[in-house]
């Protein structure tokens, strides 16, 4: 059996990579994909602890997180599509209408 903290370290590495992607990239789709990476890292943590304490609550939570991430991806991509239609670019630095 693999010790739980191995999974926690892997999850931390993936989360860090996701954070780096959100902070440094300007392509909106790439930022969105980094957010999905962060969500998956958290899913891994939930399952690691569910296995550690032999409880199903972690798995149920991952189930709900997956459903909500699906809904969020659909709405987020719809927002990106409408942004693209208005501005012909997906660069998030160009979406600065509130900044004169």
């Amino acid at each position: 059996m693999i010790p739980t903290h191995y999974f926690l370290i892997l999850s931390a590495i993936l989360f860090t990579i996701g954070v780096c992607g959100v902070l440094t990239r300007r392509n909106g789709i790439t930022i969105f994909m980094s957010i999905e990476l962060m969500v998956n890292a958290v899913n891994l943590t939930f399952l690691a602890y569910a296995r550690q304490f032999h409880q199903l609550h972690g798995m149920i939570f991952v189930f709900f997180v997956m459903a909500i991430a699906a809904a969020e991806a659909a709405v987020g991509l719809a927002i990106f599509i409408s942004l693209f239609h208005h501005r012909e670019t997906i660069d998030v630095d160009e979406a600065n209408l509130m900044h004169w």
Binding site: M1, T4, A12, T16, I17, Q52, F53
Partner: peptide, 18 residues
């Protein structure tokens, strides 16, 4: 951030397996 988290997890998060 990443280095800090990984360091502290490796140091303190070892648990007994069920």
């Amino acid at each position: 951030f990443g280095i800090a988290i990984v360091y502290y997890l490796a140091k303190y998060a070892a648990m007994q397996l069920p």
